[in-house]
Every structure is written in C-alpha cells, then in structure tokens.
Amino acid sequence: MVKEMIKRAAKIARIKLADGESERLAVELETIFDWIGDLPRFETKLEKEYVEPRKDESTQYAGVEEIKSMFPKRRGDYCRI
C-alpha cells in the first residue's frame, strides 16, 4: 500500500525512479512513514496574522534582462520549449 502511494506521489511530483533507486527509495520512505507512525491530534489552533492589501501602483522592474538571460532557451522576450 505504501509502495503504491509512493509510486503515485513520485508520478505527481514528476520524479521518475530509476530501477534500483525505485526499490531503495520505497524502502526508505516506508521506513520513514513507519517511524512517523500514528500522529496524535491536538485541539489547539495557531492564530495567523492579518496583512493589509497593497496600494495599486505599478513600477517597471529594472532587472528584466537578467531574468530573461536565465531562460535556458530563449527567443527575444520568450522562453522556448
């Protein structure tokens, strides 16, 4: 059951498990799940803060070229597949 769940999670996470790796990872994750075990549930709740929305003003970011230069493949302003 854990093995199925791990396989599915890996697929969702876009991680392909190589053959030997698949087995080993499954064992490790099974161990981790076993170790975590049954977690108790407590009733306390964490109070989260509030944030004030931001004024609607715009600025052109100055470092657009740096960002574009990091596209692995690029055509002008576009990122290429």
Binding site: R54, E57, S58, T59, Q60, Y61, G63, V64, I67, K68, D77
Partner: peptide
C-alpha cells in the same frame, strides 16, 4: 507584485 498589468506585448516581469 508591482509589475504593470499592461496586457500588450510590453515585457512585464520581476523575480
């Protein structure tokens, strides 16, 4: 973020 929402081909990007 504060990038402009101009929906023409202006490049509007930030981290």
């Amino acid at each position: 973020c504060s990038c402009p929402t101009s929906l023409e081909s202006d490049v509007s990007m930030c981290p």
